[in-house]
Design a protein around this nucleic acid. Structure first.
Lengths: 216, 216
DNA sequence: ACCTGAACACCGTTCAAGT
DNA sequence: ACCTGAACACCGTTCAAGT
């Protein structure tokens, strides 16, 4: 409850995110962050109670970067698309932070704000209660799930290898046993993450538009 | 290339998964896994080249548990649902392992097999190439995304608190500013993860059924 | 060929002490 | 009230040596 003076919350946040962007997740230690701030490791414990709080600072910083036009959407689908895309782009701008965004519970204001905004847009489809919950689960699941599939799915690029090499690896699989895997690996060679995101989101929006969430 | 004799690959896998299930992710260290196997830490380096390979053993073990009827699906939607649900249940049976499944690239045979099976089912919708890739991204994204949202989304339960307490926390938010968040928190109180999964998947399947992936 | 203990360079965190 | 170094109990991994 006492409020320390040497650093602000957003100074810690910015330093932690800068460290992750620069050095990767493995570089984010209490000692390294303290060094980034020009102090000793133990000083950080005046601001956070445990190491995991540092991860939450990073998540908050990334999600907090999402920006989208607040009004002027003729259709709720356009508004959902705008918010989802803003989140997607904020996450993709900090690839090293993705594992944290996937695994850390954040209850920061920035996360609440964007969640409520997405819900508001989805509610324009006529949904509330359980149907709104499901729509939200599906859309937010798709956003993080697509970030995940790029990071760690079977088609994810190896950290140190080119896209060509990853695809070549698939082409080397037994052709008839993994015919479809080889097919989509080839397709992936000619597609972009943004394009795949947009198309996947459109599939889900088609489903959300077809079933307007009638009462149940 | 030499093949060590003291332990088999699946012995390591089983021991690692048992350790994670029992002690949580923090309990999975080289030393602890070696202890589980009754040997010294350095012995493990005869089987894996680095610590992260242990994580991959766990991912492989979990995904490898997915089981579903291999044939007899009148509709491709039913087959997609069966495979997706099998994956979902395998993941949910090992909640401590979820962060690894979200963040670790696995290229094990078990992962390839289930991926190809899912693709085969999706291909029955008439899709191939880019459209099949997008359908796959959407479905697998949704599966892992929903596991993620339970683990770390804004509505995720705190490790040490009851569902009631989590929901009470949302009810305490400013009512008009977070009206929809409070609405779905209330809805979450009366729903199950399985139900939400099924309903979200159905939304996406509706989208996949509406747009049969015409050529492009 | 396979196994393994000692040692090194890290971690997060407790504790006690500074101002 | 806020700050911080020393020390502790861990890590993953290198190295050198065992059989």
């Amino acid at each position: 409850m006492g409020r320390p003076a040497k650093f602000t919350h957003s100074q810690l946040q910015a330093a932690a995110l800068a460290l992750v962007d620069r050095e990767g997740l493995a570089g984010l230690s209490m000692r390294a962050l303290a060094g980034e701030l020009g102090t000793g490791a133990m000083t950080l414990y005046n601001y956070v109670s445990q190491r995991e709080d540092i991860d939450l600072l990073v998540v908050e910083a990334v999600i907090g970067e999402a920006r989208w036009p607040l009004a002027g959407y003729a259709q709720w689908q356009d508004e959902v698309r705008a918010i989802a895309t803003a989140l997607w782009q904020a996450v993709r701008a900090h690839p090293h932070a993705i594992p944290l965004i996937l695994t850390r519970r954040s209850r920061s204001p920035a996360v609440f704000e964007v969640t409520e905004a997405l819900l508001r847009a989805l509610a324009r489809s006529g949904r509330s209660g359980p149907a709104l919950l499901v729509a939200f689960r599906a859309v937010s699941g798709l956003i993080t799930g697509l970030a995940q599939s790029e990071l760690a799915g079977p088609l994810a690029l190896q950290a140190e290898e080119s896209a060509e090499l990853t695809i070549a690896r698939f082409r080397a699989l037994p052709a008839e046993r993994f015919a479809h895997l080889i097919d989509i690996a080839n397709a992936a060679a000619g597609s972009t993450a943004d394009g795949e995101f947009r198309a996947s989101l459109d599939l889900l929006l088609a489903g959300l538009s077809a079933d307007r969430g009638g009462e149940r």
